[in-house]
Nucleic acid binder design. Structure first.
Lengths: 113, 113
DNA sequence: ATGCGTTATGCTGGTAAAAACATAACCCAT
DNA sequence: ATGGGTTATGTTTTTACCAGCATAACGCAT
């Protein structure tokens, strides 16, 4: 017997940040490009871009500073607001993770070493 | 800004109990019939029955005592094992709920009365 | 000027999930 | 023996979502 859970943030009933977008944004920070980040995950650029767009629209803030054209063709990096936001979510998510794990042990693995 | 979460139990990677089935089983206990329970929710009997079947198969235990035909046409009631199981899940789920709510407040509603 | 690699965005076909439909079997009551 | 209300299950239809395709604009480098 195992457990699973999902947690995410919404604004006006619309999802704005969950594990998927967190991962994507993290990869973008790491690679400096939406396309490269999407490539690393099993995601199409089309989908990655759409997810970011939706989140930005719903949040009403820019998550990325994007550049079209240039020496590397272009690129994207996180805005300071995005950095703050995902960091806070990461901590929240981490605390929830611990809590769920502990509750599961308590109720479904009582006498385990 | 709001949060949402889902939590459920699995066996060998297959879901066996979550909020949906919990609700369904609760309604069955209340009404003594799969069909009536499904009717109360916005669910078709076909779907309700299928969900229960899958869970029973995966768990390897009977969740319902079912009767075909009879004075009321038939009916269904929870087995003692099902009662124990869903009660434990309910408590687990409740604890998780509290924990998530608290973490959310901590990280996203710092100075609220 | 041509090309490369990027952001940006509409469109479309396929697929998987969900809903609806159709029957059968059962048993008590009338 | 007929009917009502149930469990049980296969089949079909509809819907919703996702993947991929296509295309444009941009700016630097060569």
């Amino acid at each position: 017997m195992e457990y699973r859970f999902k947690v995410w943030l919404e604004k006006e009933g619309q999802p704005v940040l969950g594990d998927g977008l967190l991962h994507l944004l993290t990869m973008i920070r790491q690679h400096g490009s939406i396309r490269k980040a999407a490539g690393e995950m099993k995601m199409s650029y089309r989908q990655a871009w759409g997810n970011i767009k939706k989140a930005e629209d719903r949040l009403g803030i820019n998550l990325l500073i994007k550049q079209i054209g240039g020496e590397a063709g272009g690129g994207a990096q996180l805005t300071p607001e995005a950095e703050m936001f995902i960091e806070r979510y990461r901590e929240f998510r981490s605390e929830v993770d611990s809590a769920v794990r502990e509750s599961f042990r308590k109720f479904f693995e009582p006498g385990e070493s």
